[in-house]
């Protein structure tokens, strides 16, 4: 049998072999059946280092089909290294369609953000998770934290929030802010800003979480209660920004600070690049938009 030289590296669809995908799908199904529960799975070596989204990539590989449209974001951006390389990876090993538009995607793999555009039923959000165990910060023993989850002993999670208030006068945790899922399991939402926590609550989309190095998968099925932990006298609050996006003028979105020069110049722009570009295409303008600056000149 002759094989064309260009076909030396042939992969199964979406890189993983079918047995592995089945194993991961079983873990995902179990995760969906027990919202917020961390399901152990036999995480595989992927052609990228740990910490680059190996968990999310395996989950995506296990659920993606030829008809899916994939979007990959890193801190909200479609054009950063991690996002670009994972998108290219799936183009290569699964030959799927890709997009940067939230509304057009069927699967969105994300590192540390939930898109601003509301997700809809039928969409799946795949989170890359570095440390899935929310209790680890205070209780390093895995045997003990598993027991605490099993027995619903979550007082310790509030100890962390107590420490925040005692030290900073308010709950200073701004990302990976712990949530309680469907009134049962306390879950680490991955290092998304707490700004995004409310979007998880009763979301019509399926949310899957993959931690490759830690070998855990968990899930929040559509329309599941996701409540951020807090104190009665220090209720949960999301970040607010006192100025709109400098490029598209959007308010009530999560902004990144961008340094402009060496003289302290900076601006706040949407962290979700697709959201920002879509708004600009529709004619929305912020005070630092190129054409506004052009006109001013």
């Amino acid at each position: 049998m002759s094989t064309p030289a260009t076909d030396i590296a042939t992969y199964n669809f979406a890189y993983l072999d079918e047995q592995t995908k089945r194993m991961i799908r079983r873990a995902i199904l179990k995760g969906i059946a027990i919202p917020g529960y961390q399901v152990p799975f036999a995480s595989r070596e992927m052609p990228m280092p740990y910490g680059w989204g190996t968990g999310g990539v395996q989950v995506t590989a296990a659920i993606i089909g030829p008809d899916d449209v994939l979007k990959v974001i890193d801190q909200g951006a479609d054009d950063t290294t991690n996002a670009v390389s994972i998108r290219a990876f799936f183009q290569k090993v699964a030959d799927v369609a890709v997009t940067t538009e939230t509304a057009k995607a069927t699967i969105i793999q994300t590192r540390h953000r939930i898109p601003e555009h509301p997700l809809t039923g039928g969409q799946t959000l795949v989170y890359q998770v570095p440390i899935p165990e929310p209790l680890r910060f205070l209780e390093p023993r895995e045997t003990e934290t598993r027991k605490m989850h099993a027995l619903e002993e979550y007082g310790l999670m509030h100890v962390k929030l107590y420490e925040d208030i005692a030290r900073h006068g308010r709950i200073a945790t701004t990302y990976a802010y712990p949530v309680k899922v469907e009134g049962r399991y306390v879950m680490d939402p991955s290092p998304t800003p707490k700004f995004d926590n409310p979007k998880m609550h009763m979301s019509p989309a399926l949310q899957l979480f993959g931690a490759g190095r830690e070998k855990r998968i968990y899930a929040v099925p559509p329309f599941t209660k996701v409540v951020s932990l807090d104190f009665e006298d220090h209720p949960f609050e999301i970040q607010t920004f006192d100025q709109p996006c400098a490029l598209c003028g959007a308010e009530q979105v999560y902004l990144d600070e961008v340094i402009l020069d060496d003289k302290g110049g900076h601006m706040f722009v949407c962290s979700d690049t697709d959201h920002c570009e879509t708004r600009q295409a529709c004619g929305h303008r912020g005070h630092l938009s190129p054409d506004i600056l052009e006109t001013a000149r």
Partner: peptide, 18 residues
Amino acid sequence: SAGANVGERLMAVGDRHY
């Protein structure tokens, strides 16, 4: 902190008022 050490049991039994 010392305060959290003392408060942990209270939080464990459901006290949610800082």
